[in-house]
């Protein structure tokens, strides 16, 4: 269960990562593991659903693009890449990272790629939240007349 949770966490991170940053970190990591494709990168869409009133029955909101692929390392691990958008290279890197995270290189990959990526994405999110917080309205009451 923890392993599944971990995998869910890193796959989610890879899916949402800015493509250029992920590719740059992968390049800096410098690995070039041998693999073969189980499914070459393919661009498609998924239907995004919402709920009536935010909490009720589901409805179809519209689609979003995503790219997926699957590969197997020579050492045997199978990696899946599911990323938002249409960048096939990002999907490939995501699948490679997913595969490596299941093997002996996990710690090194986490340190070199996942940790900095998570930190940068969190920083970007926090910056927006800080800017939003500065636009929070402080109400004050105008006192009229004598008391």
């Amino acid at each position: 269960m923890t392993a599944e949770n971990n995998r869910r966490t890193w796959m989610s991170l890879l899916a949402k990562a800015p493509a250029e940053r992920l590719k740059a970190l992968w390049q800096a990591y410098g690995a070039d593991p041998a693999f073969h494709w189980l499914r070459t990168p393919e661009i498609g869409a998924t239907m995004v659903r919402g709920r009536l009133g935010g909490t009720g029955a589901p409805f179809n909101l519209g689609e979003m693009t995503l790219t997926r692929c699957a590969l197997q390392l020579e050492s045997g691990e199978v990696g899946h890449g599911y990323v938002q958008g249409r960048d096939k290279q990002q999907a490939e890197v995501a699948a490679l990272v997913d595969a490596l995270m299941q093997g002996p290189a996990a710690e090194a990959v986490e340190t070199a790629i996942l940790t900095p990526l998570a930190a940068e994405m969190m920083a970007a999110k926090t910056t927006r939240a800080q800017k939003a917080a500065a636009t929070k309205v402080d109400f004050f009451t105008m006192v009229r007349g004598e008391d």
Partner: peptide, 29 residues
């Protein structure tokens, strides 16, 4: 859009977890 294969459908989005850039109410100050 019509040229894209559909990989699936999402779980309904959880708007209560939205990271809000903006959020106003005209009913509750």
């Amino acid at each position: 859009r019509t040229t894209l294969p559909r990989f699936g459908v999402s779980l309904p989005v959880k708007t209560e977890d939205m990271a809000c850039d903006r959020r106003v109410s005209a009913t509750f100050k």
